[in-house]
Design a binder for these strands. Structure first.
Lengths: 200, 200
DNA sequence: GTCTATACAGCGATAGAC
DNA sequence: GTCTATCGCTGTATAGAC
């Protein structure tokens, strides 16, 4: 593990537990056992550390992308969601303290919104596919299906903020992947609903 | 308007737009046109200002409580939600920057969680009532109804964080009150669904 | 109540020796 | 690469005059 990697790992750890605004370059340096001056040799400013972490996050998300082969089976969807949630959880300060980070580095806000817009497109694709396969109830209006997509995005973007309010679970990522997936159930035809409930 | 009120009003304004962590007592004092020393005469520390704002918020929420007469009609529920959302929006830094506030003042975290637990009890009450009135579809499992309550809480607690990710609307509180209410629709019997859709 | 002045701590960041 | 020392700045909080 290089010095730069050590810095990033410890910074991520501290940002997640104590918050970006209260963790200083001094804290990071001290808890690795290195001088603050040396840290600034590797990363000239605190913002550069944050940016480096965000790059790391983006890379991990891209590597975890599962839908390259256009396989949108429900097990695939729920698995992909779990992957993404797991990564988001490791970099959770970007989402729990998003406002603080965004004020410091507006370009991170921009990229994050772009990323979730991409996810939204994917979800609409999946919904349309499912719709054509006839798994939705006929009584569900067009409007309500679009609403389903919004709810989905809502859940994906906000589960980390909501975490504190709902009852805690051991495996947070797993829990919320299933939670988010459960949104679909009442929209499905009865026989589909049962099949999906088995997966959850 | 007393000096203390002026300070609170301006502090709230600045906290909402620039974030608690970056707004200083100097900023607040300067933008009212008073000295920083004087501000500290009225409120000894920044945390006391935050606490005073939270007290104000709690008072407003209590005064807006509509369910004292146990009227749980859907128009009443949606109206109450709009009221609450409107208040939350005015004090939005407590929810958008909740982590920052909670790190500074853990007692605010405690009270906030208690408040939403109360809301959760209310919602379960309402759901049970509606269930007994037979408005839910028979196919919906017991589990799924409990899930509905969780989703509801999820929406109520996180709409301000999610705001940025979804498409913006002019009247945010109104928009999200309806958004949250729409969660119910696919759980309802067909004739009820239509009646509810009219309200939205 | 309101002001000015000031003490003090902690921050990000740099300089220079090794 | 790594260290120590230090600068400049900003934020919180207090003291004392009016």
């Amino acid at each position: 593990m290089t010095t730069k990697q050590k810095i990033l790992a410890k910074a991520l750890d501290l940002f997640n537990t104590d918050g970006v605004e209260s963790v200083t370059t001094r804290h990071i340096a001290k808890s690795i056992g290195m001088s603050q001056g040396n840290l600034h040799y590797h990363y000239p400013t605190k913002n550069v550390v944050v940016k480096a972490l965000f790059e790391q996050f983006l890379t991990e998300v891209q590597n975890a992308e599962r839908f390259k082969d256009n396989n949108f089976a429900k097990e695939q969807v729920i698995g992909s969601m779990k992957d993404n949630f797991e990564i988001m959880f490791r970099y959770r300060f970007f989402f729990k303290d998003n406002e603080v980070v965004w004020r410091r580095l507006p370009e991170i806000k921009k990229t994050t919104l772009e990323l979730f817009n991409l996810k939204k497109t994917q979800i609409l694709q999946i919904i349309t596919l499912y719709k054509n396969q006839g798994i939705f109830r006929e009584q569900i209006s067009e409007n309500q299906v679009l609403f389903l997509a919004e709810q989905f995005i809502f859940s994906i973007t906000s589960w980390l903020s909501a975490k504190e309010y709902l009852d805690q679970e051991s495996d947070i990522s797993e829990y919320y992947a299933r939670f988010t997936f459960r949104i679909w159930l009442p929209y499905l035809k009865e026989e589909e609903m049962r099949k999906w409930e088995e997966v959850l």
